[in-house]
Write a protein that binds this DNA or RNA. Sequence first.
DNA 1: GCACTTTGGTTAGAGGTTGTAACCATCGTA
DNA 2: TACGATGGTTACAACCTCTAACCAAAGTGC
Lengths: 234, 234
Amino acid sequence: MLRVQNSPRRRYREQVIGEIKQAALAQIDAGGPGALSLNAVAKTLGVSGPALYKYFRNRDELLTVLLLDAYDDVAGAVRETLEATADEPARHRLWALAAAFLGWAAAQPHRFALIAGTPLPGYEAPPESVGKARAVLGPFLTVLAQGRPAPVAGSLTGQLGEWAATTPAVADWVRTWAPDGDPALLLTTVLSVWSRLHGVVSLTVHGQFTGMGFDPAALLRAEMDAVADRLGLD
Amino acid sequence: MLRVQNSPRRRYREQVIGEIKQAALAQIDAGGPGALSLNAVAKTLGVSGPALYKYFRNRDELLTVLLLDAYDDVAGAVRETLEATADEPARHRLWALAAAFLGWAAAQPHRFALIAGTPLPGYEAPPESVGKARAVLGPFLTVLAQGRPAPVAGSLTGQLGEWAATTPAVADWVRTWAPDGDPALLLTTVLSVWSRLHGVVSLTVHGQFTGMGFDPAALLRAEMDAVADRLGLD
DNA sequence: GCACTTTGGTTAGAGGTTGTAACCATCGTA
DNA sequence: TACGATGGTTACAACCTCTAACCAAAGTGC
């Protein structure tokens, strides 16, 4: 009877970890990732500061867990949107995916800041975050493949084709989401989507568009329209 | 004989302020804006921590000064590029402006983080930073006006036209850099440029493109090409 | 059932931060 | 020359991250 994974003690530990994460997120919500204080989290839970080190090796590990959770969360939102729009024209799906991302980020700007590569002193995102970012962008590949991706002038498409040819994980990723697509062309386009998405979302949640009288969702839609036009998406 | 602005004491004060800023930038360089420690700056200068409060009201004020300096610096780089490319075709000018911005940010990623709206606990960028951001984008308006800016589908162009019509500072800004341009159309386009620029640069300096085998400058060029195509820029 | 191990908590404390108050020396001004 | 401004100091409050040592309770194996 192997009970290692299911005991009162195990359940207690999971519960406490959940409470720690919750309290930590509330703090990050109020002041950004840099405002995370293990002491303040501990006070919220009614334990001493050092008690938290029984659950997380250090502050960075807690940040890492929160970051990976955030990725999973937004990836889930995007994937659900892909599924929910299965019957819609590709252009609409692209809008919806982008809107889902923007909506997620606007609802939790500081979680977005966690995944956006925001510099934190001494902190470095873990290697796994690369795979998580691909999970977020995967659904976009599916939609982009419904158009006719084209190369761009310059060296970019060639460089990306090289990358796909020499990195099996990347080729697999593209194949998973767009089985019949050309990796170099799809990477070229998804990179464009990613940087535009990131640009609009980042400027939005960091308040840089404040006072400018326009709706960031309208800008994002226009940017996705420009992508769709290039692809010949209906 | 009014000597208030020019005395040994005044000059000493300016020198010390300069040294503080320099030491602060070195720290930010090493660990990002959040790593700024007034104590460590003081130690670098061989004075006590509280001595710095004679020059800056608090840490935020030092961050603000550094942020405004960074804006002036990058705005200068972009403006110089505009002037240096006066004889080139508009498309090349657009490339050059974007490349100047990327080059500046890549050379000092943490100064870029300062102006990019990176969340810092309790810190809020000052109102003047809006005008500074416009100084950075102004030269782009000049180049964009050499093409035929067009509206985009959706509400964006209308919203931006409304903003320009109700905000004299914005209308003045557009007129300063593109005297004969249509504000709504130019704002629509410069917003697109800004978000693409920000997207590529931000992902670049935050290391999110690391290991992907392509040159971010090639991506940025492709994005500016897409803008130029839309404008009919030579 | 008992002895040992593991887990989960505590306190004490080191070394760091930001910022204030009080004090003092020096310079500048009226 | 007296007073005010400037520029420095130390002491300290309140906060941070994290480690070490200790102890109580739960879990495990014989």
